Computed example of a mutant assay.
Amino acid sequence: MKSPQYIFSVPMKVRDYECDIQGVVNNANYQHYMEHARHEFWESLGSGFAEMHNKGLDAFVYSVHITYKVALHPGDKFNSCLTCHKKGAKLVFDQAIIREDGTVCAIGVVEAVAVLHGQITRGEHFDLLMEQIKEKYHIE
C-alpha cells in the first residue's frame, strides 16, 4: 500500500507526563497528537472550530483507527502529519506520527462528519473545505 503524501505537519515533543510506567507514550496521547494537528490544520485554512461553532456548524469525529508501530519516549521530537480527502459525507484524515529520524511511530485514519444546527449534513460543507485545501496545498 502506498503511503499518503502528507500536506500538513506540526512539530511536537514528548513530555514526561505523557508516558506510562513502562517509559513510553501512553496510547491515548497519540490520538491527542493527531487531534492537535487537525486543529492546527483547520486554523491554517483561516478559521477555527470556535468560529465554525458560532455559525452553527460543528465537525465531529465519527471514527478513529490508530495502528501503533514504534513507541515514543520522553523527549522524542516528532511531527504529527496529515492529509485528507472526502469520502461520501465524511472528511477522512490520513495521519501519522513520525519521529524526527523518519521512523513512523503510529498511523491513523480519522473520519469526521459535519453537523449544522444539530443536524448531520451530507458533507456539502466539506466540499467547500476541500476546494480550499486543494488550492492552498496544491493537491488533486
Rank of each mutant, 00 (worst) to 15 (best):
Y33T: 04
Q5Y: 03
P4M: 02
H85R: 15
E100K: 11
I133W: 02
F93Q: 01
H65K: 14
N29R: 13
I7M: 09
E140A: 12
V104A: 12
I133R: 03
H73A: 09
G88K: 02
C81A: 13
V10W: 05
D58Q: 11
D76H: 06
Q132K: 15
W42F: 13
Y68A: 02
Q132C: 07
D20S: 03
A28R: 07
S44K: 04
E131V: 10
M130S: 03
E43M: 14
E40P: 02
C84E: 00
I66P: 03
V110F: 10
I139D: 02
E43W: 10
K2M: 13
K86E: 14
S80H: 04
E35R: 01
H53Q: 12
D58N: 14
Y6H: 14
D127Y: 06
E40I: 03
E131I: 08
V110Y: 01
Y17P: 03
A96H: 01
I21F: 09
A114P: 06
D94Q: 09
I21Y: 06
A50H: 12
Y62E: 05
D16G: 11
L91A: 00
A59V: 11
M34E: 09
F8G: 01
D127W: 01
A37M: 09
Y137S: 01
G23D: 10
A50F: 10
V24M: 07
H125E: 15
K77D: 14
I7R: 03
Y6C: 02
I98T: 06
L128V: 09
T83E: 05
L116I: 01
E140T: 13
A28G: 12
E131W: 03
C19A: 03
E140R: 08
K2T: 11
S9M: 08
S44N: 09
Q22V: 10
I21Q: 13
W42N: 06
M12C: 13
S9C: 13
A28N: 10
K134S: 15
K69E: 13
M52C: 11
H117T: 06
H85A: 13
G23V: 07
K55A: 13
L128R: 12
D76F: 00
N79H: 14
C105K: 08
L45W: 08
Q95F: 04
E131N: 14
Y6G: 07
K2P: 15
V10M: 07
K86Y: 08
K55T: 15
E100Y: 08
M1L: 08
K87L: 15
D58V: 14
Y17G: 00
K134V: 09
M130G: 04
E100R: 05
M1R: 06
M1V: 11
A59L: 10
K136M: 04
L82M: 12
G46E: 04
H53C: 11
H53P: 02
P11S: 10
K2Q: 11
V70K: 14
A28C: 08
H73D: 05
M34N: 10
G48R: 05
V115T: 06
G75I: 07
K87E: 15
K87I: 12
E140N: 13
R122N: 15
D94L: 05
G123R: 02
A112K: 05
S3G: 04
C105V: 11
G48F: 02
V110H: 09
L128Y: 06
Q5I: 14
R122V: 02
V92A: 00
G108S: 13
